[in-house]
């Protein structure tokens, strides 16, 4: 049976999890090295802010380390890891909302989003498409945003997304559909004419 690099990486992760559960900190360090970039990029797309993404990624791996024993099926480590990361994102989102009193010092991204919503087309054209897309993605409802990130950037199957989030495949598809439609609507309402680089 031909194995893809992805399968090899997953198998390697499972071995590292088993070793980590036996108290091998070196193995856990390797596991972090293997997944850190992926989880960071999930968080980065979720928040669109490096500091927050780093914070969430670090919290995720600390939570993983502290709960290694609760993993019964090492094969489902990947889903479990994404679940922890998404939970950390939600928690951080809630923390951010609690800090709304501090809104006078809003982040650059928040300001950028205001511009996306209210500034004319000329303003947009000067910005990078990537930056604008990231800002628009951030504005989606959490449920839709998470599914888009998992499908579009993490390349997960609908079955895997459903397993990770504890929802049905149809729900995952529905969230993705409405998420994409919502993104398109935001872009149309903003009068953006994005030029894509392939």
């Amino acid at each position: 049976m031909a194995e893809t690099l992805r399968d090899i990486a997953l198998y390697h992760s499972e071995c590292l999890v088993e070793k980590s559960q036996k108290g091998d900190n070196h193995a856990f360090g390797k596991l972090v090295g293997l997944w850190f970039k992926r989880i960071y990029n999930v968080a980065l797309k979720y928040f669109g802010e490096h500091d927050l993404a780093m914070e969430v990624t670090q919290r995720t791996f600390i939570a993983v380390y502290n709960n290694l024993d609760s993993i019964k099926e090492v094969k489902s480590f990947k889903y479990w890891l994404y679940k922890v990361a998404i939970n950390q994102c939600h928690e951080e989102e809630r923390r951010q909302k609690r800090r709304t009193w501090f809104s006078i010092f809003q982040s650059d991204d928040a300001k950028r989003m205001e511009e996306v919503n209210f500034q004319p087309e000329k303003e947009f054209q000067q910005k990078e498409t990537e930056e604008i897309m990231g800002s628009i993605l951030k504005t989606l409802p959490e449920e839709q945003k998470v599914v888009i990130i998992m499908k579009e950037y993490e390349g997960m199957k609908f079955r895997e997304i459903a397993e990770t989030l504890g929802i049905s495949e149809n729900t995952a598809k529905s969230r993705l559909y409405y998420g994409l439609k919502s993104l398109r609507k935001t872009i149309e309402n903003s009068g953006l004419n994005l030029q894509y680089n392939y």
Binding site: K37, N41, T129, E130, L180, L183
Partner: peptide, 16 residues
């Protein structure tokens, strides 16, 4: 829309 989302690329990061 997918092409638009594909513009957001992964960022390299140094693990702490």
């Amino acid at each position: 829309m997918r092409k638009g989302l594909a513009q957001i690329r992964d960022k390299e990061v140094m693990e702490p």
